[in-house]
């Protein structure tokens, strides 16, 4: 079976952190990509009505070809059945309950061969997350959620001042030292960060900041393209791009993987994976998305050179 594994984005975080807003935002931004959004229950995660074109029990058809299912107590069974039921699905966004540990859920998904974990995204409410993490009952749960994150979306930054926000960002760096932190409001982050760039689309060049004051990750990122030598060792390149200093939030590139054909490298925050890619569509570009002014163009070019076998490493 050489089918490319389906990427799964696990979305976690406590009640009120903005998971529902984020899910609706992603469905609205799918732009032709066929995403299956799995939620614990529609009662707790209401899907915006104008997005729904049909309802069938636990399944909602979303305009534009996406689908939304509630899995209740049957997450594994829902995931096991999905590839047969919806062979057109390209990506899964898995929203977990407010007290679930997204790291454990991601671990469970790895037991299923058709899938790979693309990223664990944890939302945090800028106003309350520190207090929650200190709560007698919930503290360790919140801390374990954050520690598992590849990307932390620090949401509702409009409710705190800059000093408080920066203090929380510093505190998060302690809780989850390798995770990338994206401050935002209304869970508005660039959808490409979570659901990837559309194949063949041109990466957006730097966009202009919408407004001063509250940072808005939807407009504050750069997307860059690099020429990719076909003999780059993806297993070596992955950790360099996923390292905290690279400024990379998401990257995707393809290369020949020894004798095993074409492989794809996916990087999201601190996580990377190398998986078989469909033959034929091998692109020669490495596409990288990062926060504006944090992407180190030269470091990435260096990384590509270092991990390419044609290049003699000087030393």
């Amino acid at each position: 079976m050489t089918r490319e594994p389906l990427p799964v984005t696990v979305v976690g975080g406590y009640l009120g952190a903005g998971k529902t807003t984020l899910v609706n935002h992603l469905l609205r931004s799918a732009d032709g990509r066929r995403i299956a959004v799995l939620v614990n229950d529609f009662g707790a995660t209401p899907i915006d009505r104008d997005l729904i074109v049909a309802t069938d029990g636990d399944t909602l058809e979303i305009s534009g070809g996406c689908v939304c299912c509630s899995y209740g107590s049957d997450l594994m069974e829902t995931l096991m059945a999905l590839p047969q039921q919806r062979p057109d699905v390209e990506r899964v966004v898995l929203e977990v309950s407010g007290v679930a540990l997204p790291g454990m859920v991601a671990n469970a998904v790895t037991l299923l061969e058709p899938y790979r974990i693309d990223a664990i995204v944890v939302l945090a409410d800028a106003e309350t997350v520190e207090r929650q993490a200190d709560d007698t009952y919930l503290g360790d749960t919140i801390q374990r959620q954050l520690a598992a994150a590849d990307l932390i979306v620090l949401n509702r930054c409009d409710l705190v001042d800059d000093i408080a926000r920066d203090r929380t960002i510093a505190w998060l760096a302690d809780q989850a030292p390798d995770a990338r932190v994206l401050p935002t409001t209304h869970a508005r982050i660039a959808p490409e960060l979570l659901i990837g760039l559309r194949d063949g689309s041109t990466p957006r060049r730097p966009a202009t900041p919408q407004a001063l004051g509250v940072p808005d990750a939807a407009t504050l990122y750069d997307a860059l393209e690099f020429d990719m030598p076909s003999d780059v060792d993806l297993q070596e390149l992955g950790p360099l791009l996923a390292a905290p200093g690279s400024g990379v939030l998401r990257a995707k590139g393809m290369a020949r993987d020894g004798s095993r054909g074409i492989a794809a490298l996916h990087v999201v925050g601190r996580r990377f994976s190398v998986d078989p890619a469909p033959s034929g569509g091998a692109s020669t570009k490495l596409v990288v998305i990062g926060l504006r002014n944090h992407l180190d163009h030269h470091a990435i070019s260096d990384a590509l050179r270092k991990t390419s076998s044609k290049q003699e490493t000087p030393c």
Binding site: Y14, L15, S97, G98, V99, L101, Y137, L138, D140, T141
Partner: peptide, 12 residues
Amino acid sequence: APNGLWYTPPET
């Protein structure tokens, strides 16, 4: 062993 799991959030 680490502490166990909440199955339902307190607000709920």
